[in-house]
Design a protein around this nucleic acid. Structure first.
Lengths: 149, 149
DNA sequence: GCCAATTCGTTAGTAAAGCATACAAAGTGG
DNA sequence: CCACTTTGTATGCTTTACTAACGAATTGGC
């Protein structure tokens, strides 16, 4: 009585099927895996791309700002910024306005990496969105926003 | 020009806002954090609860089955089963049918932990679902399933 | 029945991410 | 000026995830 239908994953998880959080975790895992495949060769993770993107949009942004917009604490933000700095994708500058802050800027290599990353994101997003209509995508984003806002 | 609106997170992330995968990641993080808060004192993670739940629903299930239904590889499944076994929540038995498999069973402690976990999940899910109508929850689950199936 | 291929479990190693704690430096307010 | 807060930094621990290798059991082709 182990449940041996050959391939109906959703039907096989039993009581877990009704748990919304469970589906979010599975969906996140699937997206993460596809992301990793798409970015093999570029060697960038979701977080790293998010940070590059954010710094690209807001040159001079502080680490704490990056962390708060991506829902990461200071220590986690540090490790990611460290990695990106080690790879010379961004640099820190002591902020003039507030000596506590590190202002973050993309290097030229960082800008190039971000540009490549954005084209990868495009195909990754196309894969993701292919299963939805435009209206559904909008609805999905709106519902997910209700969770994380 | 750093963008200093005080608290409109969604509006502040710029180009990232249009990326569906980004919202999934943020939503997952928010759910994960709330889950952790709910389960402090019970000391169980999402994965551990999922495995307990699955073994509870399917006594004698093999590790590989658990892994495939939760989208984890063998090695990852191992570490989780090991932890649960160390805490005496489940036990392995060599399968009679197939000597390669380990049949998994909940111990009494495991059944008790699962029962407690299910009540925690209930309040966690209530928190999560509170922002949606029943129809929206159904639509959300359906859309997430399209991603992970 | 026998050998090759496959499957399942296990071990070890690596890496990302998250969190807690503690400390230093810079700013703020009484 | 002194307490308090904020920001960055350093360290260490935990969970999750993956790879690669190996042994044991099973399966399939012959």
């Amino acid at each position: 009585m182990i449940g041996n239908k050959e391939n109906a994953p959703a039907a096989e998880i039993g009581g877990l099927h009704g748990v919304v959080g469970f589906h979010i975790r599975l969906a996140h895992g699937a997206v993460y895996r596809h992301f990793s495949e798409t970015f093999v060769g570029l060697e960038l993770t979701q977080k790293q791309v998010s940070v590059l993107w954010l710094v690209g949009d807001h040159p001079g942004i502080s680490q704490i700002e990056v962390g708060s917009r991506l829902a990461m604490d200071r220590a986690t933000t540090m490790t990611i910024v460290n990695r990106l700095q080690d790879r010379a994708f961004l640099r820190r500058e002591r902020s003039m306005r507030d000596g506590r802050m590190q202002a973050l800027f993309l290097t030229d290599a960082g800008k190039a990496a971000l540009a490549k990353a954005k084209t990868c994101i495009e195909s990754h997003e196309a894969w993701l969105k292919s299963r939805f209509t435009a209206a559904e995508v909008e609805k999905l984003v709106e519902m997910l926003s209700r969770i994380h806002d």
